[in-house]
Each structure stands twice: as C-alpha cells, then as structure tokens.
Design a protein around this nucleic acid. Structure first.
Lengths: 197, 197
DNA sequence: CTGTACTTTCAAGAATGATTGAAAATCATG
DNA sequence: CATGATTTTCAATCATTCTTGAAAGTACAG
C-alpha cells in the first residue's frame, strides 16, 4: 500500500491554522471564554511560537486593546505565559504546549470560578430551610402537615443537587490534582473508566 | 444535643426557592444555556410540580413568548417533559426529578451538540496537512527541511488535541451510557475514581 | 531626568444575543 | 366546521457583551 506523502505548502499550512483558529474560537463561548480569547489561544497553541501583541493583532485583525485584554485574560487563566526575548523589549506570549495540562488548567479554573461559589451559595440556601432530614413532627405550630411535607421535599431536591455538585467538584479535583507527565490524572482516569464502568 | 427543628414558614420556603432560582439562573450562561432558560428549569426543579406557561410567566415575570421559547428549549434538551392534566386544556411542564439523570442528560446533549461536531471538523483539518506521522524525507520538492519540520509539529499539536477531545468524548459516553437507578455511570465513576486515581 | 518604546485602561460605539407583545397558527370541543 | 382557548412565531426593541482607538501609564536606555 503506497503511502502518498505529499509535500505541504506554506499556504496549506496557514489555511489549516486558519481553520483551526476559527473552529476553536467558535467553541470558546460554549466553554465560558469569549470567542476572541479562544482565537488568540488557538493561534498561540497551533503556531507553537511565542508571539508579541503586534503579531497577534496582525494575524487576527483585532485592535491593540482587544489583543492586550485577551492575552491578559489568558495569562490569568494560566493557559498562556509571558516570555521575554533577549534584546527585544516587547513581551511575548506562549501557550501551554501540552494539551492534557491545558485541560487540567481549564478544569481547575472552572472549579474555582464556578463550582465552588455555587456550592457555597447552595449550602447557604439549604440552611434557610432547616436541618438535614429534620422531622418536624415534634413541633406544634402553624404549619400544616402538608406544608411540612412540602418543605421536606424541597430539602430533598436541594440535597440531591448539592450531592451532585459536590461529586463533580471532587471528581474535578482528582483530575486536576494528580499531575504527572503525559496527562496524569485525566488520562489515567479515562483509561480506568473505559475498563471499569 | 438538642436538634432544633424549627417550623419553616411558607414565606421562608418561597424565599429559598427564589434564591435558588437566581443562583441557578446565573450558572446558565457558563453552562451554555441562557439565563432565563436556567431559571425556568430551576423553578420547575425546585418546586417539583408541573406548571403551565401562565404560571411560569407569572412566577418569573417574563413574557409569554419568552416562557414558550424557554420551555420548548428545555424540552429539546430533554430536561423537561410535557405532561397533561385531565380536564385542563393547558399544557404542563415537569422537570426531571433526578439530579443524576439530569446531569447525564446535560452531558449527552453537550457531547452531541459540541464535542462531536468539533471532532469532525478537527479530523477534517487534520487531513489537510497530510497523513499521520508521515515522514516527508522521500520527496524531493520545494519544501525546505525546516518547513517540513514545521508541518510535522503542527500535526503533532493537532493530534494531541484530537486525542484529548476523543478521550473526553469517550469518557462522556461512558458516563451517559450506563444508566441504572441512582446515578448510574456518573456516580459509579466518581466512586471508582476517588479510590483508584 | 528625558525621550522613546511598549502596555494598559476605558469611554464610546458596534455587534450580538435576549425579550417582548401581538398576530398567526394550532388545537380541542360543542 | 366554527368558536374560543392555547401555543408558537417573529419583527422590533432592549440589554449585554465585545471591540475599538486614543489617552494615560510604565519601564527602560542613554
């Protein structure tokens, strides 16, 4: 079987990069970051090279302000790091080259920004309507049995959700926690699961 | 230790529901659905009762059109089902009561809507720049060794990403696939992982 | 210090997405 | 099949988020 090893032209490479950037950019919003931010990340990831603000602006046709904002946000997400080139005063930005560590970073940040605050609020709301599995039968009061039962059901639903979010949180922390070359926790977890479950 | 079993007033219950709806609604956008849609879902979930369009409009202070749209979207996500009440011409809507099955549904839908199309496009882009791990050394042509190496690196990065997304996809399908009472795959997976990894 | 190169900020404008409300479509019933 | 109840649609409006570009800020070399 003849393996046809075509030579790839520079134009084709750029074309492929372009499509990748667009595709990744479209995913951004679904993953909680803005389209442009995802595009900048895609550019840095796929090109593999550190770039300065001007290069990013140029390549993506975006304004200086936008490039600056997006790069900073990416640095805050720890998806991109600042690097310096000797003899050049400009700042360069470089994407994490390891896709698996990228995934860990995203999970880590989303836990921190979304899941933890959600859990905190949920706990708080849960407290408003009494102790866990409280049986209110001991108390004579204005509450009808029906109302008491309603409250109990409310609490059951809330508890179920809290348990779910807690599990997601714990799972996420496992994934994130165990580092290691080549994917670490996430990759291992995937392997384990595909055999066990 | 005296367990203080307060009686919860109707106002307190409504207050807790309100906070829950708001909290859940805020999560919506981060999870790829609109705020209102998440609020409607929260309302149906936490109240535990089937509601018709007018009740939803009233409780959430939104327009009829908005309520209709949001409910339909929720039905399309399979998070909510239509139910009918005898002797009532209105349509009622009821949320899935099981938090774990809810989670499975969300994962299933996001795989279908986001991950699969992404994978397809990624495969397609990957093809543009040649066979897997092709060694171009056999071909004499306009390509410099440096350029050939650049293409090879591009392909490596793309392959790493494809592998990652594939793993996410497979993981997701495991979670979703094994049903079973009380959480099935997802819950089991969580248990397994917390021991193994 | 001063001038220059570079980066960040932010108010205004543009683009995108959500919401409304009323008209059109659908549906159940007598 | 005609009527009234109910749901859906969709153009217009409103809200939010994104983007720009120029001014302000920083940092460095001489």
């Amino acid at each position: 079987m003849a393996r046809q090893t075509r030579t790839i032209s520079a134009t084709q490479l750029t074309g492929a990069q372009e499509r990748f950037i667009q595709t990744w950019g479209q995913m951004g919003p679904s993953w909680g970051i803005s389209r442009t931010m995802a595009e900048v990340h895609a550019l840095l990831y796929i090109s593999g090279q550190p770039m300065n603000t001007d290069e990013v602006m140029e390549r993506l046709s975006i304004s200086r302000g936008n490039a600056s904002m997006s790069l900073r946000a990416l640095v805050e997400w720890s998806l991109v790091t600042r690097v310096h080139k000797r003899g050049d005063r400009k700042e360069y930005f470089e994407a994490d080259r390891d896709a698996w560590s990228m995934a860990r970073t995203i999970i880590r940040e989303r836990l921190r920004r979304e899941i933890l605050p959600l859990l905190t609020t949920l706990y708080d709301i849960r407290e408003e309507t009494g102790e866990r599995s409280a049986d209110a039968s001991g108390t004579a009061g204005p509450a009808s049995p029906a109302h008491t039962e309603t409250v109990a059901e409310h609490n059951r639903r809330l508890d179920a959700l809290v348990e779910l979010i807690q599990t997601i949180d714990k799972l996420g922390e496992r994934f994130v926690g165990s580092e290691g070359k080549g994917g670490g926790g996430l990759k291992l977890a995937a392997t384990v699961l595909s055999k066990v479950v």
